[in-house]
């Protein structure tokens, strides 16, 4: 563990070089994640006739601007990277280095965050110019809470993708399975619609679902849609999901490596 932390500066230097080498692709990737803008257009039209579930056009704009940003800040691609390394056997070269491959990848994907945030700035600026009423002064106390929540959402996204990638040790179709998870995530995390718009019976399960912990919660925190009374419980649930996923990944990784060692590296 201490060794892992000690290696971080070197990994960051190396990963930054890697991110810069792929910067053009990165920008295209980032721009591809523009679905929140489409959804904003839809909900903006819906809210034109009056607010629904307490959300008017200003709130909708605020919500989806936050979604756009948080989605970028929690963007990882470990499922494709690791699946590729396992399929091609490139994982072998990673395993011969005295650093955990997941740790190496985690640092790499974290170093891409600044460039992701940077590309978002002009888009967010344009949104603000289009709809000045999306801006509300953020509660200074909420900012650290938001930062914590985004960090946990990032970790959960990384661990969930890693889980599906580790399945590639046994399955050829792990990417397809991840596609199913992704569709569920898109619908239920708050990515295509604020969770507040779902019917009443769905509210409770949605609030405590891992999907909201991956996106919806930090979005709602940034947009100021969560009442301070609820923040504690929400963060605790989120932390629970992160811990659970961490344990799952550790167990699966160990078993997967044994399988890799048994069937072919």
């Amino acid at each position: 563990m201490i060794r892992c932390m000690r290696l971080v500066p070197a990994l960051v230097r190396f990963s930054t070089a890697r991110v810069m080498a792929y910067r053009a692709e990165m920008v295209i990737w980032i721009l591809s994640a523009s679905l929140p803008l489409v959804m904003l257009a839809l909900w903006n039209a819906v809210a034109a006739e009056g607010p629904i579930a307490g959300m008017g056009q200003g709130e909708m704009a605020r919500y989806f601007a936050a979604t756009l940003l948080v989605n970028q800040l929690t963007g990882v691609w470990i499922v494709w990277q690791l699946n590729y390394e396992i399929r091609t056997g490139l994982l072998s070269t990673q395993l011969l280095r005295p650093v955990h491959p997941l740790w190496h990848n985690a640092v790499w994907m974290m170093t891409a965050l600044p460039i992701r945030a940077l590309v978002m700035l002009p888009i967010l600026g344009a949104l603000l110019a289009w709809r000045p009423d999306l801006w509300v002064r953020p509660d200074p106390l909420m900012l650290p809470v938001f930062a914590l929540s985004v960090a946990m959402a990032w970790a959960l996204a990384f661990l969930v993708q890693a889980t599906f990638a580790i399945l590639s040790f046994w399955l050829d179709q792990s990417i397809g399975l991840f596609g199913v998870w992704y569709s569920g995530w898109a619908l239920l995390s708050g990515y295509v619609a604020p969770l507040a718009l779902f019917p009443d019976w769905a509210q409770r399960p949605l609030r405590f679902s891992p999907f909201r912990a991956m996106l919806g919660l930090p979005v709602e925190l940034l947009g100021g849609f969560v009442s301070p009374r609820e923040v504690g419980l929400d963060l605790a649930v989120q932390a629970g999901w992160v811990l659970g996923a961490l344990v799952l990944v550790r167990v699966l990784w160990r078993r997967g490596l044994r399988h890799y060692g048994a069937y072919g590296a």
């Binding site: 959804m39 839809l42 039209a45 819906v46 034109a48 006739e49 629904i52 579930a53 397809g176 399975l177 596609g179 199913v180 569709s183 569920g184 898109a186 619908l187 295509v192 619609a193 718009l197 779902f198 019917p199």
Partner: peptide, 24 residues
């Protein structure tokens, strides 16, 4: 998996028309 993905696509449609008769 394709069928499941389709189901997820229809989700937002249901949400919209749960709140409104017509949109635009």
């Amino acid at each position: 998996t394709g069928l499941l993905r389709t189901a997820a696509l229809v989700g937002p449609l249901l949400l919209v028309f749960q709140h409104r008769e017509t949109v635009s």
